[in-house]
Amino acid sequence: NRLGIIYEIQGMKAVVLTSEGEFLIIRRRKDMKVGQQVSFENEDIYNV
């Protein structure tokens, strides 16, 4: 599992900021809110 803070939500995608200072786009889940810490898997990351 990886951890990140939700920075922005766009439709079915969420932008998270990881503890390494990396911004990633992941698959959104219904319970996500901006500012929330979430765990996610590598499979949830969109390749940009």
Rank of each mutant, 00 (worst) to 15 (best):
N1M: 10
N1C: 14
N1K: 08
N1E: 14
R2C: 11
L3G: 09
L3Y: 13
G4L: 02
I5W: 11
I5M: 07
I5L: 11
I5T: 07
I5K: 09
I6L: 04
I6R: 00
Y7L: 14
E8F: 14
E8G: 12
E8A: 12
Q10W: 15
Q10C: 13
G11L: 07
G11E: 14
M12D: 15
M12Q: 14
K13F: 13
A14E: 00
A14G: 02
A14I: 07
A14F: 08
V15I: 13
V15T: 12
V15F: 09
L17K: 08
L17S: 06
L17Q: 11
L17T: 09
T18Q: 02
T18K: 01
T18E: 02
T18N: 03
S19T: 13
S19L: 09
S19R: 11
E20I: 07
E20D: 11
G21S: 04
F23K: 10
L24W: 05
L24K: 04
L24D: 01
L24R: 03
I25L: 13
I25W: 06
I26F: 01
R27I: 15
R27K: 12
R28N: 15
R28A: 10
R29V: 11
K30A: 15
K30R: 14
M32W: 14
M32Y: 15
M32N: 03
K33E: 05
K33M: 04
K33H: 08
K33Y: 08
V34G: 02
V34H: 04
G35N: 04
G35C: 12
G35P: 01
Q36W: 05
Q36A: 10
Q36I: 12
Q37R: 10
Q37H: 06
V38E: 01
V38K: 01
V38T: 06
S39I: 06
S39F: 09
S39Y: 11
S39L: 08
F40Q: 01
F40Y: 06
F40T: 03
F40M: 08
F40P: 03
E41G: 09
E41I: 08
E41C: 10
N42K: 09
N42G: 08
N42E: 14
N42D: 13
E43A: 05
E43R: 02
E43W: 02
E43T: 04
D44Y: 05
D44S: 01
D44P: 11
D44M: 02
I45A: 07
I45L: 06
Y46P: 07
N47Q: 12
N47W: 12
V48M: 09
V48G: 11
V48L: 04
